[in-house]
Amino acid sequence: MLKDITIGQYFPGNTLIHKLDPRVKIIITALFIVSLFFIKSFIPYLFIVAFILLVAKVAKIPIKYILKGIRPLMFIILITFLINIFMTKGEVLFEIGPLSVTKEGLYLAVFMALRLLFLITGTSLLTLTTSPISLTDGIEKLLSPFKKIGLPAHELAMMMTIALRFIPTLLEETDKIMKAQMARGADFESGNILSRAKNLVPLLVPLFINAFRRAEELATAMEARCYRGGDNRTRLNELKLNKTDIISLVSMFIFFGLIISSRYLLR
């Protein structure tokens, strides 16, 4: 049920990839995304697949587990696939009723579906191998140069940390309240849209009340420990780039640089 959502979930481990500096991983992920949009043919995709498989292997994450994360987004991939396959003009291969499938459409549909697939799996590798705390640490550090122009980097990162921290708690709570109301005969699974929405009241009211209560408690607890935002705040674990980080960063710049340039070279 709710527990099947694995996107954004951390997969604990102690591998090279897990230990990489979060800033490096964020930058590599950004490179990965950019290069995906530069790819125009299937051959560079092979390298992308190799990259994903290699990272997964080193990080000891089962491929099956990564693929599970795609399931909730399968619908979007499917829609994109269908739109591309039927809406592209070109050389007609065959027709289904009023719709025609073209050679270009088929090519584009497969191409786009793969791009989405890689986009999801590639970015999920980041969240799977980086704990939410170090992820936000990395984001804060990367954003800190923009503090000068008034960007509240620390506050943004803190908000993200708290949000990420409470996702599992909220899911757990939802599960528990749902069960408690089901024990009193509530029904969340049948009926039309209107009655289903109405049936959600016994779930949503306690969920919100508890969330507000928790937020208040958290704010009090933070204040009681003298939290007052980012200025002059030091941290327990300073992020520091080590040799592995630098080597990974440089080699990935070269790797994705080649993939991006392949667009202009492979013609």
Binding site: I177, A180, Q181, A183, V201, P202, V205, P206
Partner: peptide, 15 residues
């Protein structure tokens, strides 16, 4: 109906 279950901290389910 036959098996009534009162959860841990049941006051959190009032609505």
């Amino acid at each position: 109906q036959k098996v009534g279950l009162v959860f841990q901290y049941p006051e959190h389910q009032l609505f």
